[in-house]
């Protein structure tokens, strides 16, 4: 269900999960746009030579995925905070799931707190955090 006002938000509600595009082409597009165009993000072999499991999805791109999930759920949401911990790397060309759960609602101000995770196919959490968003009160 698309959220339009704070009255549409339910405590414990799971945001519609989505699978972000972590292909090399898309991560490279992001890296160039962000000014983070380093081989560790855009070249599997170069990343492996640095001791990494492969080219990495930048942590800040994961923040972007999480913010995008919020806007897919509540198009009018005003993101006020995204606070993330990068627990383990996400590797380009692997599949991840972007998830969120509503953990607090202030119906007077419209502020909603959402717990965020990025998980891999094994269900392991790679990134976790919290977002605070403002949802229209009417």
């Amino acid at each position: 269900m698309t959220v339009n006002t704070i009255n549409d938000v339910e405590f414990g509600e799971e945001l519609p999960a989505f699978v972000p595009d972590t292909s090399m082409d898309n991560v490279t597009r992001f890296a160039v746009a962000a000014g983070w165009n380093s081989p560790r993000f855009t070249d599997h072999e170069a990343a492996k030579k640095q001791g990494l499991p492969g080219a990495l999805v930048p942590g800040i791109m994961n923040q972007g995925f999480l913010s995008a999930m919020i806007h897919r759920w509540a198009p009018a949401a005003d993101v006020r905070l995204v606070d993330t911990v990068f627990r383990a790397p996400c590797v380009v060309d692997q599949t991840y799931h972007i998830n969120g759960v509503v953990t607090d609602i202030d119906e007077d101000t419209g502020e909603v707190e959402v717990d965020l995770t990025v998980t891999n196919e094994a269900g392991e959490t790679r990134v976790f955090g919290t977002a605070k968003v403002l949802i229209p009160t009417a």
Binding site: P20, N26, F30, G64, S67, A68, M69, H71, R72, P75
Partner: peptide, 14 residues
């Protein structure tokens, strides 16, 4: 253009 690419590559739809 870079901002738009940044947003689209993250899956933003707005």
């Amino acid at each position: 253009d870079k901002l738009a690419d940044y947003a689209k590559s993250c899956g933003e739809t707005a």
